[in-house]
């Protein structure tokens, strides 16, 4: 039974930076714009994380805005 479409996400690789993740998730986009998109879709990570900017292996990182 197929699952309904939900918001797509990835999880960070070991020691992956937000820049590397942005390039992986949004290939072809200019780096700065890709990073901005990733951050704006994932404020649950980038608003309150200590230390700031730390990506965790268990993070859910959305690679698109909310669906619908």
């Amino acid at each position: 039974m197929p699952l309904t479409r939900q918001r797509r996400f990835v999880t960070p690789g070991p020691d992956e930076t937000v820049e590397e993740l942005a390039l992986r998730a949004l290939p072809g986009e200019p780096l700065e714009a890709a990073v901005d998109r990733i951050k704006s879709w994932n404020l649950h990570i980038f608003a309150m994380r200590k230390p700031a900017g730390l990506l965790l292996g268990s993070d859910v990182v959305f690679v698109e805005p909310p669906v619908g």
Binding site: S40, W41, L43, H44, A47, M48, P65, P66, V67, G68
Partner: peptide, 13 residues
């Protein structure tokens, strides 16, 4: 938040 494509989603601070 409203994103540029018109979609909306919450974030809890």
């Amino acid at each position: 938040l409203r994103h540029p494509d018109g979609s909306e989603g919450p974030v809890v601070l």
